[in-house]
Amino acid sequence: MSHTPTALPAAANANDSGSYLFYRHRLVIRVTHWIGVISMAILLMSGLQIFNAHPALYFGAISDFEHPALLITTQEKDGHTIGVTKIGSVTFNTTGLLGLSAGGTDSHAFPSWSVLPSNQDLGGGRRWHFFFAWLLVLNGLAYLAYSLWTRHVQRDLIPTRAQLRTIGASIREHARLNFAHGEEARHYNVLQRLTYVLMLFIVIPLLILAGLTMSPGLDAAFPNLADLFGGRQTARTVHFICAFLVLGFVIVHVAMVVLSGTWNNMRSMITGWYAIQKEAVRHDDPHRS
């Protein structure tokens, strides 16, 4: 119990190599983070499985089968079959990834390596999806309650006014893969904060709400739910778009973890402890003061 954090994470374990460990992530944050990772991965893969049962998206209350907003299918071209993705009236050849993959042996919209279970199994996909949807929601509520109560959201995630003024500089530094060093690394920068707030309070809640709107039971319980989105099929499309926004976030997030110190970041999200270099403030960056 020696790691019990105080209101402000404490510095500890100074060593002679010029760095010290500081307690960055509390236990609840770490546990809910990894439950979230597992849930999201399974929800994405089982969601693609469900999508494969009817690989088309629409806007409005109903499906206008003749005019989907998005359609992933196969078509004949020059005497052989290709995989295509149609967005509105524009058709892209996506053979190898969408519509037709695995050397022409997999004609599902999303390839079998990306879906759960890996064979065509709508019922199985739904089983995985709804179990982990419940887990994601309960885990998310636990995370939110905890981080509002401990003021993690207010203190660490909401960007400060001063930070918002430096947004331009922050973008330039990220573009040069120039990450925070020393004491500065104890706090999330403005781009991190904006991204986390966008995901936690806008994209993921919208994703969940759009998912709930697809339930005929909940549409009866809350008759205006579907109207909020402009119809159930629009909600399904929003659900799909938000899922890919989360996937995009995850890709960038993992890239940032790797570029700014894979092991230090991983240790801090597993054990809580993050190494800070005791610098000698670096003067190699004129934008940093």
């Binding site: 049962a53 009817h54 209350a61 109903i62 499906s63 089968f65 709508l122 159930r232």
Partner: peptide, 12 residues
């Protein structure tokens, strides 16, 4: 009423 298929599509 709106008929929602388990596959994801809807018709009224």
């Amino acid at each position: 009423t709106r008929h929602d298929c388990v596959e994801g599509w809807s018709c009224i």
